[in-house]
Write a protein that binds this DNA or RNA. Structure first.
Length: 399
DNA sequence: TCTGGGGTCCTAGGACCC
DNA sequence: TCTGGGGTCCTAGGACCC
């Protein structure tokens, strides 16, 4: 009988680290990734490169990633670049280059699946792995029952470094929830192993918000209730949590605090929606800036349509999203009688959605979304000829 | 000079059906 | 004058994640 071992592997300061491979002269310096293309390094007559710094940044960008040297100034992901500039004016600012990060993402994932083929993609820079059946995972080494799994974790890290030149942090535990927590415990370049018996010592002292799924809102409510650490959350009565957070979330909080999680590693998921949105350089008024807004709106529809075609989907619901200058968000969605992939159709229905929304306030963002995706040609059972549907369903409800 | 862009999942109410 | 218990689909908003 084999013990379940799940790894969470998280690349260290991923975007920034990829940029440092390209510009090794920046190693050790505070570097921030974010903003638009305007901050491309410029070649100088003497052959060197001139980098932008945060000092003169003006705009609405946010920090995507910061090097550890920049983090020492208090800069972190999702912080506005203006605020980051106030904290670290001399930090180098580099534009995001998603194509390059995707290339490195493919490289590290390809290296990992050579060793551990059961991989769940959690974005460009992190993955879960089910190591249970990987040869050697269950072996003892020199009398150490965890020797095999520890060696496997090190092999994964070595493979990532060999394939990319980059470091990562790995947590290995019996489930995804704990592994995610553990990959963060020894960053950068960490390898953390935890058995269930280690939960009180290693997990319970951590702040509750470190749990994946406890965000700013839930964390603030817990604080207000006097619950700060995961241990305090674990000590709370489930009934009490249910009272304050609802049956679903309340019970989940209790399970999570005790490190219980039986979610499988899911190797593939069909996408459910596809969207494009953009924040304007300055807030636009629905009437005064009607033409500019219309052009942007049409372009977003065309981009969504081309994304659908390129990825091989069509969708049945068309939605819009507006963010007003006061950051309030409204959404509208309408479901069509048939699936579509067509830019003009998307534009038409998105336009109708837009007409049902208050337009007397300046806008900061607009977005277009398509939901209810399917692969073209895959007729749902209900739309097929009745006899065929009956055969497929064997016997439909008797009503 | 606050606060990007792309997603998932949950809740809750109403329409509609049997 | 009013009476039920499902089920599904649709829509809007919100929390959360990377």
């Amino acid at each position: 009988m084999s013990r379940r071992w799940i790894a969470h592997l998280d690349m260290d300061a991923f975007y920034a680290s990829v940029e440092l491979l390209r510009y090794p002269q920046l190693t050790g310096q505070p570097v921030v990734i974010g903003g638009g293309r305007r901050h491309q390094p410029e070649p100088q007559p003497d052959g060197s490169l001139s980098f932008s710094t945060l000092r003169h940044y003006a705009g609405r960008g946010v920090v995507t990633t910061a090097t550890y040297a920049a983090r020492a100034f208090g800069v972190h992901s999702a912080m506005g670049l203006m605020k980051a500039a106030a904290l670290a004016p001399d930090a180098v600012l580099l534009p995001t280059d998603f194509d390059e990060y995707r290339r490195y993402s493919r490289l590290f994932k390809a290296a990992v699946v050579e060793i551990a083929p059961v991989m769940e993609d959690r974005g460009i820079d992190e993955i879960y792995l089910d190591l249970t059946e990987v040869p050697g995972a269950q072996d003892a080494v020199d009398g150490d029952p965890l020797g095999g799994i520890r060696a496997l974790g090190q092999r994964l890290k070595d493979a990532v470094h060999h394939a990319t030149g980059l470091s990562c942090s790995v947590g290995i535990t019996p489930n995804k929830l704990l592994s995610k927590l553990c990959s963060d415990l020894d960053k950068p370049d960490g390898l953390t192993l935890l058995e269930l018996s280690g939960i009180p010592e290693r997990i319970w002292p951590l702040p509750a918000k470190r749990i994946n799924g406890i965000g700013p809102k839930a964390s603030a409510r817990l604080e207000a209730l006097g619950v700060h650490t995961i241990g305090e959350l674990a000590a709370a009565e489930p009934e009490w949590l249910v009272q304050h957070f609802g049956a679903n979330y309340g019970l989940w909080l209790h399970e999570a605090a005790h490190g219980r999680d039986d979610r499988p590693v899911v190797t593939y998921r069909e996408p459910k929606s596809l969207s494009r949105e953009t924040t304007f350089e300055r807030d636009l008024h629905p009437r005064q800036d009607r033409d500019a807004l219309g052009a942007i709106f049409t372009r977003l529809c065309e981009q969504v349509a081309s994304d659908l075609e390129r990825k091989g989907f069509e969708g049945r619901s068309i939605g819009v999203k507006l963010r007003y200058d006061d950051f309030k968000i409204v959404t509208r969605v309408v479901t069509l009688p048939a699936h579509t992939q067509d830019a003009a159709t998307i534009r038409q229905w998105a336009g109708r959605c837009l007409k049902t929304v208050p337009l007397d306030q300046r806008l900061r963002l607009i977005g277009v979304k398509v939901e209810g995706l399917r692969r073209p040609g895959s007729e749902p059972v209900a739309a097929q000829e009745p006899a065929a549907a009956w055969r497929l369903g064997e016997s439909l409800p008797l009503f």
